[in-house]
Design a binder for these strands. Sequence first.
DNA 1: TTGAATTGCATAGTGTGCTATCCATATCAT
DNA 2: ATGATATGGATAGCACACTATGCAATTCAA
Lengths: 163, 163
Amino acid sequence: MDVTYKRDESAGYLTNWAGRLFVRAIERRLAGGSAGPMPVFFALADGGTMSQTALARWASVEQPTMANTLNRMERDKLIERTPDPNDRRSALIGLTRLGRQRAGEALASAQDVNALALEGFKPAERDVLFALLHRIARNLDADAQESALPALPVSKPRTSRRS
Amino acid sequence: MDVTYKRDESAGYLTNWAGRLFVRAIERRLAGGSAGPMPVFFALADGGTMSQTALARWASVEQPTMANTLNRMERDKLIERTPDPNDRRSALIGLTRLGRQRAGEALASAQDVNALALEGFKPAERDVLFALLHRIARNLDADAQESALPALPVSKPRTSRRS
DNA sequence: TTGAATTGCATAGTGTGCTATCCATATCAT
DNA sequence: ATGATATGGATAGCACACTATGCAATTCAA
């Protein structure tokens, strides 16, 4: 049997590879910065604040991942946390002055890289790409939800199940 | 100015996100395994051997990344290294029996996940996706090459430059 | 043939992502 | 009001990606 597993014919491989190229292209332009804070920059660039959990959801990363990113950003004086007056567990996260400056630069770099990556694309091709990626994300998200079905929490019999 | 940085309209964000979803979908199916070894599995599944550098190039990752992956795979008894008789710096890497078994399972999972991700895609749409991702990769690769221009190695003037 | 450049690999250090847990606070039901 | 549950966050531990270096072996040029 012919076992030429052509990576170039695997949607997963291709997508992942392109994703890595995007990150590196951005980071080359950030001069000392990295790509992790970008979603935070984008979420807070307008001067607003959000909780850690909200940021994690916004960026589609898990909470510990966002916690790490925010810790690095705090270390680098890009964000500050102020206690949430309505929930003592939570803090509201906002950009510092430096953070807003970096956010501006990061946004510009992101636009540059997006434009560069899509160089030669017709507007229709761009739209098709986005639509196809969204469909992939929807399909894979559905699979994740399905796998996450919590083996029927049998802890205690209940008269009714939420769902 | 309206600063709604819609992540869903950034090619980089979307591609990266989809890439992460692919990796997680695969890893859910690998039961204890992770996705890093996949390119190695695919490259060596036919029973052949390759050097570390060749594997890194094949997988489009940097050499230290491949070195780490191979170390983990060796630790897990998935590969073995035999000295290259023609080059004492190098070793030839091949799959163990266990590695070949895992490679088979990994290939099956990859096919499942690819099929799932592209569920509902017409064949033409699949082809378009691949073509667009390839174009993005080409564009970003070109940018990487350009950035890597090594500040003109002035060490010694030469009569001619290779290029 | 010998000195310079190249190549194959290893190591150190960091960032970004994940899962699995745990604590503290809030919220909900009884 | 109290006990169970849910939620926000922290921490530990790992995988995998990168850059920057350094060493040893090979290759190339003079």
